[in-house]
Design a protein around this nucleic acid. Structure first.
Lengths: 188, 188
DNA sequence: CTGCGAACTTGTCACTGTCTAGATTGCGCG
DNA sequence: CGCGCAATCTAGACAGTGACAAGTTCGCAG
């Protein structure tokens, strides 16, 4: 690893990002401290500011990365229901990203990288619904898209918040979500 | 109003709560400052600590109040689909409450008032699904309950996050949500 | 080898949450 | 009536934080 070099850490940006993701996963974005990240990385308290200007800048970078990862995950699977499962899986594999992505008041809304990544993810979301739209008119398609996104997003959010532990028991969340989509989207 | 009394503000607790709700609605829970609340209420910076011990204590009180309001709102309507609409309406009428209620890392998880209020709201949620469970077995009922909650919660969350402005256009969110439930729960 | 810009440090400022000790008030009880 | 007492609020202090400014060190192009 050859760390502890005085200058030119080499990969400080990524180091800070992953440290931030760890911290967010454990304690949420509100508890994140730039100075603490700097300490963990063994750099001075002002070093993070050079890579991400702000606290907001750091969180915005995380959100952008998250949207990119989500777009990649969705792109791997063409079928709609399975994309929902991917959405759920994503929120479990990248809970910190997920949390920050949907906390707009923590982000720089006009950041170009964020906008681009979100656009890419949005394309994937819409592409998934396009196939389903074949049966109905355009309006129904949009409606079905919102329905699918709402279902997946609600399930993911409740899951991460620990609100589904009762209903879940010891079952696998992805499996349960598959049942959900089966229940709702079979007859429609 | 007879404010500006030096001691015994009279209703400082409520004053601080509503000021906090205003601040959260505008800038999110992360930007909330106890000292700023105290300034707005015209009291010393340490006054809030007497009513809510902590920053966490204040947010926990807000969450408990929110669960109470949600339980009341749901109790007004027996029919399931209409309860979903109430859920959506609640998140729009009390966005600050809603946001804090589902941010567990900001709350004192073992607070008795919070637990009681959440229990009450949970009862109402389950009561709404109970009627729907008549058709299927117990397992299907639980599944349908999670489906309904996920759909409503996802829609509400995405709505508050500003993620539905595209699909919504200028339509009323509640109306659209009604269409969603019609689309998904008709055939099931 | 020389300068130049990127990466990082050091120092500082206003602000925050929390703790402590003290001041003021009004209420209940004698 | 008045007196203590607890609830309510103030005042002061402390460590920690984000942001900013200015200086330092490094690698690399010319």
């Amino acid at each position: 690893m050859t760390e502890q070099r005085a200058y030119h850490h080499g990969d400080l940006r990524r180091t800070l990002l992953t440290a931030a993701l760890d911290a967010i996963r454990e304690s949420g974005p509100a508890a994140l401290s730039l100075r603490d990240l700097a300490r963990r990385a063994g750099v001075s308290h002002a070093a993070p500011a050079h890579h991400f200007k702000d606290r907001t800048g750091l969180l915005t970078a995380i959100a952008a990365e998250g949207y990119g990862l989500l777009a990649d995950a969705l792109a791997e699977t063409p079928e709609l229901n399975e994309r929902g499962v991917r959405y759920v899986r994503f929120c479990r594999e990248h809970p910190a990203h997920f949390q920050v992505m949907f906390a707009p008041e923590l982000l720089r809304a006009d950041d170009p990288e964020l906008l681009a990544a979100r656009e890419r993810a949005g394309d994937q979301l819409r592409a998934g619904v396009a196939g389903l739209a074949a049966s109905g008119r355009g309006d129904d398609a949009r409606l079905a898209g919102v329905a699918a996104w709402s279902l997946a997003h609600g399930f993911a959010t409740l899951l991460l918040g620990g609100n589904l532990e009762g209903p879940l028991g010891d079952r696998d969340p992805e499996e349960m979500f598959r049942d959900l989509t089966g229940l709702l989207f079979q007859g429609g």
